[in-house]
Computed example of a mutant assay.
Amino acid sequence: MSLLLQIETATTSCSVALAKDGVVLGFKQINQRNIHAEVITLFVEELLVSAGLKYDELDAIAVSSGPGSYTGLRIGISTAKGLCFALDKPLIAIETLEAMVYGIINADQSAISADTLLCPMIDARRMEVFTAVFSAGGTKIKPTAAEIIDANSFADLLEINKILFFGDGAEKCREVLGAHRNASFLPDFVNSAVHLTQKALEKFRNKEFEDVAYFEPYYLKDFIAGKKAV
């Protein structure tokens, strides 16, 4: 039996879910920029109270580990690590792009043909995205990378495969990739802690835990601070 608290803060979405043996008991989320620090601990408390559970009944904390927003990742992972230290519970890390893929797979498998590739995209800046390519079954076939998207991006894969692009970085790529006959885009996809459920349960059962003291977010790129407007 497992009771897992799941945290997703890699994008503008701040989301927390509670899952028991792979079944989501409840979740809370808001898709709004720069609100993560304000609501995340409140969401955790409200979920546990509504489920009639106490913190020490949790078996592990799972967190979306990146890539994604530097600030969002710091907030989510700091919260997860703090809970793990305080409760003496294990930490489970799920790569954000992988969680996004399982969110699509588990939402509606009938809409994905066996030859369709899944391409989650997280907005970086300008025409750059954090992305990878997965099979319809969730196997990664193109590694995670920060890529600047142009008309030739994914050209080799698009020639022989249908690709579904989704995530908050996908819409800005529609203009340069959308004309290809094999490219399709899923609008309004929002990252959610619910998407961590399947992989978090697998890792818990296999005891694939992180070293809480040394674990860091998967930034993929160095953080570059913007100049404050005068």
Rank of each mutant, 00 (worst) to 15 (best):
I141C: 09
F130L: 01
P90V: 06
N106W: 08
I75P: 02
L48H: 08
G138V: 05
I104G: 09
E159Y: 08
K199F: 02
N31S: 07
S153G: 09
E208P: 11
T41Q: 05
G22R: 12
S15H: 02
F185H: 01
L220S: 00
E38I: 04
I104V: 15
N34H: 05
E8P: 06
L53T: 11
C119R: 09
M121Y: 01
K227D: 02
V101T: 13
K54G: 02
A193Q: 05
G26E: 01
A80E: 15
D108L: 10
Y102R: 09
I40D: 04
V190L: 13
A225M: 03
M121C: 15
I149C: 04
E98R: 15
R126A: 06
T144K: 14
G137V: 10
V129I: 04
S192Y: 02
D56F: 14
I148A: 00
S192H: 12
K172C: 03
L118K: 01
E147M: 13
L73C: 01
D115H: 03
L58F: 09
G68H: 00
F130N: 07
V194Q: 06
S110T: 07
A17C: 03
G76H: 05
M127R: 05
H195D: 15
G22H: 07
V230D: 02
F43C: 03
P67S: 01
V230Y: 14
P217E: 04
T11F: 01
S2F: 04
S64D: 04
I224E: 15
T116Q: 15
E202M: 15
V16D: 08
A213H: 02
A62I: 07
S2M: 13
Q198H: 13
L73W: 00
M1Q: 04
K227M: 10
L91S: 04
G68T: 00
L73G: 00
L58P: 08
G169S: 12
Q109G: 13
F165C: 08
E8C: 11
P187S: 14
F204G: 13
I122H: 00
Q198V: 15
K221N: 07
V194S: 09
L4A: 07
A17W: 01
A37N: 14
K81Y: 08
V230C: 07
D56N: 15
C14V: 04
A107L: 12
D156S: 15
V129Q: 06
K221M: 12
P187N: 13
D150G: 14
G76W: 03
I92G: 02
C84I: 08
C84S: 00
G103A: 08
E147W: 14
D156T: 12
F43G: 07
F189M: 04
L157F: 10
S13H: 07
V176I: 15
G138I: 10
F154G: 05
I92P: 05
Q32I: 06
L47Q: 06
V44Q: 14
A80C: 03
V133N: 00
Q198W: 09
V101R: 14
A17D: 02
D123T: 00
L25M: 05
A193K: 14
S69W: 07
D168W: 02
L157Q: 11
P143H: 07
H36F: 01
K142S: 14
F185P: 15
A19M: 03
M1A: 08
S65G: 06
S184M: 06
F166P: 04
V39Q: 06
A179Y: 09
T96Q: 03
V212Y: 10
M100V: 09
Y55L: 06
F43W: 09
R181Q: 08
K140H: 01
A146V: 10
